[in-house]
């Protein structure tokens, strides 16, 4: 073991100097740290990574990294990310956002990104609340959570992102806790390396509107069983888990979305022959 590996990039090389808008104690600070650690682990050039987000507290993340970034519009991060990846397959594409952005307004793109299986990593910082608009229930909020917009709670069953990801064809499904920076970084690195669409739900507490989530750090636990590549088994586990099970919970081998950009040397004169009678 004499081989000396020269670490070229440090975690700080992946971070920008911009100060986040997040509240002190927000779980998203840890997620940012985990992303930079994962990129450090993989030694990816910052300029070859694109971080694409929607709108919401967590969607502010692109500008806090030293990657190329796109802070798009509410719910559309995955669509923009898909365009970036197909146009520039050599880039590492990370889509990021929150639970409202990804599962409510962007829900259709979530289903179809899982299905399309484009090679990218989707990180959802799930705090079960709309934070930027000051505390409204999101699709993952408990039905009885009281708020000004839905007094007494929504009464609606929470959305189950991991089960839906599996049913929609996602190939890599994981859950982590933002407070576990190292564990999250490892899963993100794993997700980036996995071909196809990788989905990582990060439980990231909102200290401002969901102070009750402080207890999460005591509730989360590593999955008791090893990861599976059997979707039926994964479905049973995901349906019955307590929502605090962490780790890579499903890893399939479905082929990533394939597309051909053909031959750049083709010429228009050949194409226009089809119009000649």
């Amino acid at each position: 073991m004499n081989e000396i590996i020269q670490k070229k990039f440090k975690a700080s090389d992946y971070k920008s100097k911009l100060k986040p808008v997040w509240c002190p104690g927000c779980g998203d600070y840890h997620v940012l740290l985990s992303i930079t650690q994962a990129l450090t682990k993989l030694q990816l050039k910052p300029e070859n990574t694109a971080v694409i987000s929607g709108i919401g507290c967590s969607s502010r993340i692109p500008a806090y990294t030293n990657s190329y970034g796109f802070h798009t519009i509410h719910g559309r991060g995955l669509a923009v990310a898909t365009g970036v990846k197909v146009a520039r397959p050599e880039l590492t594409v990370i889509a990021a956002g929150g639970d409202g952005d990804g599962f409510s307004i962007g829900g259709n793109h979530f289903l179809h990104a899982c299905r399309r299986n484009t090679d990218m990593t989707y990180i959802v910082m799930d705090n079960e609340v709309y934070g930027m608009t000051k505390g409204q229930p999101s699709p993952t909020t408990d039905p009885s959570w009281d708020s000004a917009l839905s007094p007494g709670g929504t009464g609606l069953s929470p959305f189950h992102p991991l089960v839906i990801a599996l049913a929609s064809g996602a190939n890599f499904i994981a859950r982590t806790f933002s407070g576990d920076v190292k564990g999250t970084a490892k899963v993100i690195a794993d997700a980036i390396e996995h071909p196809g669409f990788s989905f990582v739900q990060i439980l990231s507490p909102c200290v401002t509107f969901r102070p009750d989530q402080k207890i999460w750090k005591e509730q989360v636990h590593e999955a008791m069983v090893s990861e599976t590549d059997d979707p039926a088994r994964a479905a049973r586990r995901l349906m019955s888990d307590d929502g605090f099970n962490t780790g890579v919970l499903y890893r399939g081998s479905r082929e990533a979305y394939r597309f051909s950009c053909g031959d750049e040397k083709g010429d228009m004169e050949e194409i226009q022959k089809q119009f000649e009678v």
Binding site: A50, A79, T82, G83, V86, L91, N108, H109, F259, G266
Partner: peptide, 29 residues
Amino acid sequence: LPKVGGTLVQAEDELASINMAIGASFGGR
């Protein structure tokens, strides 16, 4: 498109198609 080095993606809706196009253009195409 593939005859000149391009490609087409079928999107899930028009919200996706415009935003995919924007993403690809951000990438330089």
